Simulated assay, not measured.
Amino acid sequence: MGSINIRNGKLVADFRYMNQRCREQTKLLDTATNRKRLTKLLKIIEAEILTNTFEYAKYFPNSKNVQKFEMLNERKQTATNYFNAPDAPTLKAFSELWFNEKAIEWRKSHKQSIEGILESHILPAFGHMKISVIKKQDILTFRAALAKVQTRTKKTLSASRINHIMTPLRMLLNEAADRYEFTSPWKNIKALKIPRTEVNPFSLNEVERLIKTAPDDFKSYYMVRFFTGLRTGEIDGLHWDKVDLDKKQIYITQSLVKGDMTDAKTDGSNRTIKLTDRVVSALQQQMKVTKHLGPFVFCKKNGKPFNYQTISRVIWEPMLQRLKLKYRNPYQTRHTYATLLLAAGESPEWIAQQMGHTTTTMLFRVYSRYVPNLTRQDGSAFDRYVETQGEDNA
């Protein structure tokens, strides 16, 4: 709503037009009568703005804002005419323009992810439609349909995955709205609420059984996964030059994502991980097997890196089935490491550093129910916990 200010003893009209603040000096002295006159005028101006009939020059012909708003209105009208024209862009046509402009900002893996979402979900649903005809209801209907899609394991898409698919659509529509001067149909559509991170770690006994049942050429791989908390991309992209067995450390600076080496996930992911004696021993054994094949610590016989989807399907799932353990995705090895450290009584700050978290906030939020009395900060408690099979903490 407009307001009245005073400058040099005269009234100033203060209002918003086209999302910009406008302050226009009048020749009216600050009197009760003049305030009423200006208040009435401001109400008329605001009514005309709401009905899209306001002409700036009609009320403030000598204002420097007249030319500015005439140019803005002209640009808006040009964009509107193009947007509503028979040859206005379809979402497919605009998506190609948008993708080419944005691609330079993205990592290769992110480009592939966006490209996959466009091809698999967004373009089949909206590609043939003009952007001008896509409505809020169309978006909500599309999202509801995603909730019924089944994955390879016959499960429905998670809220997180649905939000991930919807993000490029939101970016497309909002960019088009800015470019063609219209109100985005995405207005007031909120992302789905994502449930708390599911933590379903293995017990130490289950970890030992899994390592024991793993194929001989994968025992070291799972030993390192379970007792370092590395993410899948971090362990699959681990190079021998990042392993220092004398200092019992590995250095995480990169990750293997969809077959390509990239920088670590976040700045906090760049870290030095302290290794237990068991992990050092496993890496010494692994060195005999793969050091001569190339840079990757864990790799195929030809030196090429693993494909995590293949390893999960061919190695991981059969291991769980043999032991009659409930299926859990391989990322639970990372959660297992965190919970074992907590159960051993290691310091939260030290655990966060090992995991690649910049603060302990996520540690407590995700693993709060696994936090006992926390005292140690050097890994020694975890060594003893593993060596004694957890008996000392029983």
Rank of each mutant, 00 (worst) to 15 (best):
G2L: 04
S3I: 09
N5S: 14
L11T: 02
V12K: 01
R16M: 14
R16H: 15
Y17L: 03
R21D: 09
T26I: 07
L28M: 11
T31E: 00
A32P: 14
K36W: 07
A47I: 09
A47Q: 11
F54Q: 07
N62G: 12
S63M: 02
K68L: 13
K68D: 10
F69Q: 10
E70T: 11
T78C: 11
Y82G: 06
N84I: 01
A88F: 00
E105N: 14
K111M: 12
Q112A: 15
I114R: 10
E115R: 10
I117A: 02
L123F: 08
F126W: 09
I131G: 03
V133F: 08
I134T: 02
D138N: 14
Q150V: 11
A159F: 04
M166Q: 01
L169F: 02
N174A: 12
A176L: 07
I194N: 07
R196P: 12
P201I: 08
P201K: 04
S203H: 01
S203P: 05
L204N: 00
V207A: 00
T213V: 11
A214C: 00
K219S: 01
Y221Q: 06
M223A: 04
M223S: 08
T228I: 05
T228E: 04
I235K: 00
L238H: 05
D241T: 02
L245F: 06
D246M: 05
Q254S: 15
G268E: 13
S269C: 15
N270D: 11
N270L: 13
R271T: 03
R271A: 10
S281Y: 14
G294H: 01
K301F: 07
N307P: 07
Q309T: 15
P318M: 04
L320Q: 12
K324A: 07
N329D: 14
P330N: 08
Y331W: 11
Y337M: 09
T339A: 06
T339F: 12
L340D: 06
H357K: 13
M362Y: 11
F364K: 14
F364R: 13
R365F: 05
R369D: 14
Y370F: 15
N373S: 10
F382L: 15
V386R: 04
Q389K: 12
